[in-house]
Nucleic acid binder design. Structure first.
Length: 428
DNA sequence: TACTTAGTAAACAATC
DNA sequence: GGATTGTTTACTAAGT
């Protein structure tokens, strides 16, 4: 292989702006809201999660309300710039968020922004490819997508990629292959057309991705509670965002996140881990592994949060690393375990030989390059024993109960308690 | 400075 | 045969 010129000149050129964009987009929190379904579900050919929730398993009310959708509907949409009066159907989150001010360095009231909407459309999204893929998959009704549809989703929601060199597709595939968060699912036998496999989010890593999204955006939401020197003009979309952001306390945001995490807690080892219709049961304590309390957050170090302040996208993904199911392994990884999006990898995976067979079913040929480095199979599909801290678990359950109570939701756990209580009363 | 992570480019094989 | 998909390696940039 010849010398690789890291990035093409044009991409290098856009990099400096990226930083600013990312800073600004962290401010969007809407971005969080930008789990695109929040504002563009109507425009998307893909069903919204709400639709899925109601259609999917025909689950109970609890199930629906404790779903990720709950967050979208009750919190994240509040951040959506275009939320009031209907979002622009085809607008990308980026577009929505940046609105007419664009330059994050400028306060919302600034009218000196030189970024036109066209420029914004050409701006690179503030999300890592991992998150983009995650969002795309999560948006799909079946929670699994072929690569092609992932491309499509990304292009649809981030017009930047429609005009970008096709290298990003390579990056997407690269991410899918290397990222442990994504699993390949063979198409059904009666597949109609198309080649390749379907990709889904590994439930085990879903909390990591959610956490990454959260960390990428929620701090920014908090930031919006600090009014700029001058009040945004009434017509500014940022005003909406600003006001909405102020209406939410950080605790509320954490609460929502906790619910997300509860909903997506690892350990949901369904018969088919990628089966979106497999119900989640909040009453199973072992499923709750992630705390909403930063102090209890063993998966995501505060360091990752700090990183988030300066490098949104990267930090979010790096936090995934930190937050891998094997806390404590994230750091001091041997450099041999590297490449692209291996941020989700952990050490034990590196020793997981035969992993590829499980994933793709295709035996890997001998390394093309006679490099001296030891080959480390991706080990992406390694399964780990998830240990649950009982205390943490209990706290989580309590927190979850409180959150659900605040949200007017009764978990089945709660209901069980109540029923038990009523039984006691009845006995008396 | 060393390390980590994300992104990119490229090569290659398999599949459609 | 060409396009697409999936995997892997190598490298750069940026952050810690």
């Amino acid at each position: 292989m010849g010398p690789i010129i890291g990035m093409s000149p044009d991409k290098k050129a856009e990099t400096p702006g990226m930083q600013g964009e990312r800073v600004g987009l962290r401010g969007l929190c809407g971005g969080a809201g930008t789990l695109p379904e929040a504002e563009c579900g109507a425009a998307s050919p893909l069903a919204t999660s709400l639709d899925r929730g109601s259609v999917g398993s025909g689950g109970s009310e609890d199930e629906e309300l404790t779903n990720l959708n709950w967050l979208h509907e009750n919190l994240l949409q509040n951040f959506t710039l275009g939320g009031a009066g209907g979002a622009q159907p085809s607008a990308s989150p980026l577009f929505d968020i940046e609105g007419d001010t664009g330059a994050p360095q400028n306060p919302p009231s600034s009218s000196s922004s030189s970024l036109s909407q066209r420029d914004l459309l050409k701006s690179k999204p503030p999300f890592s490819f991992s998150l983009l893929i995650y969002m795309a998959i999560e948006q799909s009704p079946s929670k699994r997508l072929p690569v092609k549809d992932i491309y499509g989703w990304i292009v649809q929601h981030f017009p930047y990629f429609s005009s970008a060199p096709t290298g990003w597709k390579n990056s997407v595939r690269h991410n899918l292959s290397l990222n442990k968060c994504f699993r390949k699912v063979e198409r059904s036998l009666g597949k109609l057309n198309g080649k390749g496999s379907l990709w889904c989010v590994d439930p085990e890593y879903r909390p990591n991705l959610i956490q990454a999204l959260k960390k990428q955006h929620f701090p920014a939401a908090h930031a919006f509670c600090t009014p700029p020197a001058s009040t945004p003009p009434a017509t500014s979309p940022h005003r909406h965002l600003f006001l909405q952001g102020c209406s939410l306390k950080e605790s509320d945001i954490d609460a929502a996140t906790a619910m997300m995490l509860l909903n997506a807690a690892p350990g949901h080892h369904h018969a088919n881990p990628c089966d979106p219709e497999s119900p989640l049961d909040l009453t199973q304590p072992d499923l709750i592994l992630v705390s909403s309390d930063p102090n209890q957050d063993h998966n995501y170090s505060s360091m990752a949060l700090q990183r988030c302040s300066s490098r949104s996208s990267s930090s979010s993904s790096s936090s995934l690393d930190d937050g891998g199911p094997s806390p404590g392994h994230a750091r001091h990884r041997p450099r041999t375990c590297r490449a692209g999006s291996e941020g989700f990898h952990s050490d034990e995976d590196d020793s997981d030989l035969g992993d590829r067979d499980e994933r793709g079913g295709r035996p890997r040929p001998a390394p093309r390059r006679s490099s001296s480095s030891v080959k480390h199979p991706a080990g992406k599909r390694a399964r780990r024993e998830l240990t649950v801290n009982p205390e943490l678990d209990e706290e989580l359950k309590e927190a979850a109960g409180s959150l659900l109570h605040l949200a007017g939701i009764r978990t089945s756990m709660d209901l069980n308690k109540r029923s038990a209580k009523s039984k006691k009363l009845n006995r008396k």
